[in-house]
C-alpha cells in the first residue's frame, strides 16, 4: 500500500486526518480524540495490519518554528506483513495534555507512555500503571518541557554546588524563519 492509499484508508476512519510532509516522508496529524478507535483499526484491519509499534514518544512544541505551543505525541507503526509504515501524530494542549493509551494494543507501549508521562506530563488514559519511569515518584515537574525550572533542592540536598543557585534555563527563542 503506498502512502496515498494509506492516508485514504486512515481517513475512512478519521476524516480529519491530514498528511504533513516531514523530511523524506509524511506523518498523519489526527485529532487526539480519534486516537483510541484509529489505533485499533490500524492494528486489526487486514489491509493495514500494523502489528508492530516501532516507537512512541513525545516532545514539547514551545518555541518550535511554525508550531502552536503544545505537546506533540507520535506513534510509529510498522506492518511486517505488508511492509509498510505509518507515522501518527497528535498535538495536545500544554495544560493537562491527555490522549488514549495504546498499551492494551501493543504492550510495548506501557513503558514508553510512562516515560512520556514522566518527562512531559502527558496523561495516557486507560494505561494500566501510569507512574513515573525514570525520575523518583516525588519529583516535581516534567523536565523535558521547555519551560521547566531546575530544582533548587531534592529531599533536602541542594542541587547547586557551594552556594551556587541554578537559574531556570532561558526561555526558548523562536528560530529564524519560524512563524
Amino acid at each position: 500500500m503506498d502512502a496515498d492509499a494509506l492516508l485514504a484508508a486512515v481517513q475512512r476512519t478519521v476524516p480529519e486526518a491530514v498528511a504533513v510532509a516531514a523530511g523524506p516522508g509524511r506523518y498523519l496529524l489526527v485529532p487526539a480524540a480519534a486516537v483510541d478507535g484509529l489505533m485499533l483499526r490500524l492494528r486489526d484491519e487486514t489491509e493495514l495490519a500494523f502489528a508492530s509499534l516501532m516507537d512512541l514518544t513525545g516532545w514539547d512544541l514551545l518555541g518550535m518554528p511554525g508550531a502552536e505551543p503544545g505537546i506533540a505525541v507520535g506513534w510509529w507503526l510498522e506492518s511486517p506483513r505488508h511492509r509498510h509504515q505509518v507515522a501518527i501524530r497528535v498535538h495536545l494542549p500544554r495544560e493537562a495534555p491527555a490522549v488514549a493509551s495504546v498499551a492494551a494494543l501493543w504492550p510495548v507501549a506501557g513503558w514508553w507512555e510512562r516515560e512520556v508521562y514522566d518527562l512531559l506530563g502527558v496523561h495516557f488514559s486507560g494505561h494500566p500503571d501510569l507512574r513515573r519511569l525514570l525520575l523518583p515518584e516525588d519529583w516535581e515537574g516534567h523536565p523535558l518541557r521547555k519551560d521547566y525550572a531546575y530544582p533548587v533542592a531534592y529531599r533536602g540536598v541542594a542541587h547547586a554546588r557551594d552556594g551556587q543557585r541554578f537559574a531556570a534555563p532561558p526561555a526558548a527563542k523562536p528560530k529564524p524563519g519560524g512563524a
Binding site: L135, P143, Y148, V157, F166
Partner: peptide, 20 residues
Amino acid sequence: NSGGPFSKASYSVLNGVDKV
C-alpha cells in the same frame, strides 16, 4: 567529585557525592 560534565546542564545529577 562535583557533577562533572553534568554539573551545569542536568536537572537530575547530584553535584558531588560529598553532599550525601
